[in-house]
Design a protein around this nucleic acid. Structure first.
Lengths: 105, 105
DNA sequence: TTATTATATTAGAAATATCTAATATGGTGA
DNA sequence: TCACCATATTAGATATTTCTAATATAATAA
């Protein structure tokens, strides 16, 4: 019934359940980036972005290292990319279905 | 920047961001089930379970059909199973890492 | 040292998700 | 028809997330 594992699993999904955090993952797909390079690609405040990065880090999705005064983030578990791709596949199929059901009336 | 697609993607992750909904997906992995057979396997109220099923359905993760007075649910987009497996892989790796870092002191 | 840049942390307000309890709907069988 | 079973819907209370604004920290440069 109420399973510890399901809690852990849903925590990872929860970390990905925000558009800004998806955008961050997509940005990191081309390689590691410092916060200073992530910031201008998002429309969210510096402090808010920092909080989103923390959420991703807490679930092991990204990791970070310091480089002088900068902090460099990268994706830690590459499975995340596959997950995003799978979701996109689901969405595309849903859209096709919607189109079909619209033309059938 | 603020991308429509990221919103759609995060909506799917959000649908999976709850332990009860993960449990439902796992139950359906063995095949379709009526609500009456899902209910006793969860520890959440009937009305609450119904709401969770609606969330999954709204994101195209499950679908349903009627059979007499019963409603049968099944997973609609099988990618969901892969996603759960990928998350489990991430979690296992994180646990290994934690174990290692604990023994190294 | 002091100022500056890069990033993180905090507190609290606002938005959203979740749960419970009550009620509604719709099919089935007496 | 009436009563019953299976499921969905609703309203409102509670819990959780998200955001903003202010402040803290830490590295570097002047």
């Amino acid at each position: 019934m109420s399973n510890m594992g399901n809690q852990l699993i849903s925590n990872v999904f929860k970390a990905l359940a925000h558009p800004t955090r998806i955008q961050i993952v997509k940005l990191l797909r081309n390689g590691e980036l410092c916060v200073c390079d992530i910031l201008p690609n998002l429309d969210s405040e510096q402090s808010n972005t920092s909080q989103h990065l923390t959420v991703l880090k807490n679930q092991g999705i990204v990791e970070s290292r310091k480089d002088g005064s900068k902090v460099i983030y990268s994706v830690k578990n590459k499975e995340v990319y596959e997950m995003v791709d799978l979701v996109e596949a689901i969405i595309l199929r849903q859209i096709e279905e919607t189109k079909t059901s619209l033309s059938n009336r």
